[in-house]
Simulated scan of single mutants.
Amino acid sequence: MRVALLFIDGVGVGRKDPAVNPLAGRTHLLSQFGDAPGTTLPEGGRCIPVDTTFGVEGRPQSASNQTAILTGEPAPALIRRHVLGYPNPPLRGLLAERSLVKRLVASGRTATFANSYPAPYLDALKLRRRASTTPPEFTFSPALIKRLRPSASTLAFSAGEVPLRTLDDARAGDGLTHDITGSHAHRRGLFVPQRTPEEAAQIFWRVAEGVDFTFFEHYLADEAGHARDFDAAFAALDTFDAFARAVVATQPSDARVLICSDHGNVEDLSTRSHTLNPVPVLYFGPPAPEVEALATVADVGRTVLRWLDVE
């Protein structure tokens, strides 16, 4: 039984208040609320709200909580702080040692990252990548290269020596852009195909064919939350929902699907900050009573390892 994990940055379980929550009044999979019933999930799906704080003072942040998801370890508690943006040295060390991708590969399992990146970006960060025959899309100045930092997800896959996809893969239908449809990348001057969310879901399952663990990352909802931009939030959430529904609707019988976030943000546009709300973990697949015991975002990574028989 293989596992697919769709990760969306910055979506929590908030109030059903359309004045602050763009998920209110919509029937998205992630329209789950703390003060009202949420969307009934298709295909017998389950929603489990989980903690993002780990008992650590302050607001949950992306680097530390994404590390928790991608290692199965309580990263904020281990380093005693929340770390925003990109992993700091302690988190990088944790990912290098405990990345679930590294542990899967060491146990003979296979893993792949469905996202595609510009080759010059991966090269600037010295991250292992797949071959690219297209001329570089752009170049970085030496000053900018010094400021670039790798994400938790790219470090997790690099720890397992899994080559990352380039935009050549996206153009060949063997990878996805982070915005799912390609429109965001296209507006930034990158030549990539523009696809519907349903077409992107087909590509996702093509990428996942025969692979034990497949990961996809979407972060535009978090950007919209920080900007307090309802229009951007609607665009990001609507696109992700259409994609996620198509992924679930076309889910192979031998696959489990998890959808999760790292911390709250876009569900409360009254503030630019991350929230203390729990985040929804959605599960679609054969009966798995163990998902009801999920307590923190780190348990998502632990569950992936358990399902794939990795200690």
Rank of each mutant, 00 (worst) to 15 (best):
L5H: 02
L6H: 01
I8E: 03
D9Q: 11
V13L: 05
G14K: 07
K16M: 13
D17P: 06
A19F: 12
N21W: 01
P22C: 00
L23P: 02
H28F: 14
S31N: 01
F33K: 04
G38C: 03
G44F: 07
G44S: 06
R46P: 11
C47M: 14
C47W: 01
P49F: 03
D51T: 03
D51K: 11
T52L: 04
F54I: 04
G55W: 10
V56I: 13
G58M: 11
R59C: 11
R59D: 13
S62P: 07
L70R: 04
E73H: 14
P74K: 08
P76D: 07
A77I: 08
R81A: 10
V83F: 10
Y86W: 15
P87G: 07
P87K: 03
L91I: 05
L94E: 10
L95V: 06
L95G: 06
A96H: 12
E97H: 11
S99Q: 06
L100N: 11
L100C: 03
L104A: 07
S107V: 04
S107D: 12
T110C: 07
A114S: 05
A114H: 02
A119C: 07
P120D: 03
P120L: 07
Y121W: 13
A124H: 10
K126F: 11
R128M: 13
A131E: 15
S132P: 09
P136L: 12
P136E: 05
S141T: 15
P142Y: 06
A143L: 14
R147D: 12
R149F: 08
P150D: 01
A152N: 05
S153E: 15
T154D: 05
A156Y: 01
E161P: 09
A170T: 05
R171A: 11
R171P: 02
A172M: 09
D174W: 12
D174K: 14
D179H: 02
H184P: 04
H184D: 12
H186N: 14
H186M: 12
R187A: 12
P193A: 03
P193W: 00
P193D: 00
Q194A: 01
T196S: 12
P197R: 03
I203M: 04
A208F: 02
G210L: 09
V211A: 06
F213M: 06
Y219H: 13
A221N: 00
E223Y: 14
E223D: 13
G225W: 01
R228C: 11
F230G: 10
D231I: 06
D231Q: 13
F234I: 03
A235G: 07
F240E: 04
V247S: 01
V248D: 05
T250Q: 12
P252N: 09
S261I: 00
H263W: 10
N265D: 01
V266A: 02
D268N: 14
S270Y: 07
S270N: 12
S270A: 12
T271S: 15
R272I: 13
S273T: 12
N277M: 05
P278Q: 08
L282H: 05
P287T: 09
P287S: 11
A288S: 15
P289Y: 10
E290C: 07
E290S: 12
V291Y: 03
E292R: 15
T296S: 14
V297K: 11
V297S: 02
A298W: 06
D299F: 06
V300G: 09
V304W: 08
R306T: 14
W307H: 05
D309K: 14
